[in-house]
Simulated assay, not measured.
Amino acid sequence: MSTANSLDAPYDLEAGNRPPLALIAGPTASGKSDCAVMLAQHLEKRGKRGVIVNADSSQVYADLSVLSARPSPEEMGGIEHRLFGRWDGAQGCSAADWANAARETIGRLHREGAVPILVGGTGLYIRTLLEGIAPVPPIDPAIRDAVRALPVTEAYAALKTEDPERAARLAPADGTRIARALEVVRSSGRTLTQWQAETTGGIGDQVSLFPAILLPDRQALYRRCDLRFERMIELGALDEVRVLLARELDPSLPVMRAIGVPELSGVLQEAWDLDEAIARGAQATRNYAKRQFTWLRHQPPRHWARIEFDSFNERLISDLLLRKFGLT
């Protein structure tokens, strides 16, 4: 099957050509959305239809317009956007849920002759879409409850005995991933690595992938994180959380644990004041950006383009992206 040398190269699905898929990944506040719009507008000038497909685990929820920094109609720049605000907060969106929707959306866009532009920083979403889903059977609820009740130090110690390979790849304080690996091996009798070797449904070998990872200077990124959370307050984030709390959703749902929701909930519940919430929210945003930055630097394939920059010079970043995508 042929592969494209540039993002706007013509393709014929019936002839077995691999259709193009652009991917712009990066930590929160790195400017991914603006870059995606710029790319789609550039494609439009070249007679192609570019459509942006969300790959951010917060922006999938309709309830989190402000706190997820979902693009406004003005910020969309006249470009079609898909899978933004698609899920109601009462319904958790797993990586598998999102990947199924993204696979269907991308396939439909390819059949229409469009160029999908995947944009986001949720590594698990991207990996699941490209590599597929491991057929892990449902976890025994009793085992899940028992594992989740363990202190992270005990869970990690148990994982080192029951799945030493996975334990060696995880940080001792990574409670979520440690619990997941431990509950899988205890419930199924097989390690998560063994299940992941049988992944199915990935589209990585069916498309011509044009990936670019934005890696700005960390201190500049953290300053943008601080400004972003303050801006969210100005745009009505407190009211957004007030409406969300009024729904009385399960506190364990992803939408209730999204950055900004716990922090601003504390204000509404009079646990702390707004200044404290802003400080907490900014710190949580920086911590998240740091985790994303580390994952994106080390986990994706080495041949994926890493675009590193010290300042947020839109013209420079745009030129680098267009060059990586064969459009200059």
Rank of each mutant, 00 (worst) to 15 (best):
G89H: 11
Q59H: 04
V66N: 00
L150T: 02
T128E: 01
I307E: 08
A102W: 07
G31N: 07
L39A: 03
Q194A: 11
P172I: 12
Y222H: 15
L13H: 03
A305N: 07
S265A: 15
R103F: 03
L227W: 12
S265T: 15
N17Y: 09
V119Y: 01
Y61N: 01
G266Q: 13
H42R: 12
T193H: 09
V243Y: 13
V255E: 03
F312A: 06
N100I: 15
I139Q: 05
G26D: 10
A114Q: 05
R280D: 07
Q194M: 08
S58Y: 12
R166T: 14
A237T: 12
V66F: 01
R306N: 04
D12R: 06
C93A: 13
L274S: 12
R242C: 07
L235A: 15
G47S: 12
T3M: 10
G89D: 09
E314S: 14
V66W: 00
Y61R: 01
V261M: 06
A155V: 04
Q91E: 14
S311W: 04
P137M: 15
L244G: 08
G107F: 04
L182D: 00
E314H: 14
S72Q: 10
Q206E: 11
L23D: 02
G260H: 09
W98V: 04
A277T: 09
E74C: 02
A62G: 06
G326I: 11
W195Y: 14
R315A: 15
D8K: 09
P172H: 13
M256Y: 08
V147L: 08
V255T: 08
S33W: 01
A271H: 13
A271D: 10
P141I: 15
F325T: 05
V185M: 02
S187P: 02
A277K: 03
D8P: 00
F229K: 00
N54W: 01
N54F: 04
P27F: 03
G123E: 10
R286V: 08
D97E: 06
I213G: 03
L249A: 14
A149W: 03
E198C: 10
V207E: 04
R49Y: 05
V119S: 14
N54G: 06
R70F: 06
T122H: 05
L159K: 06
A305M: 10
R103M: 04
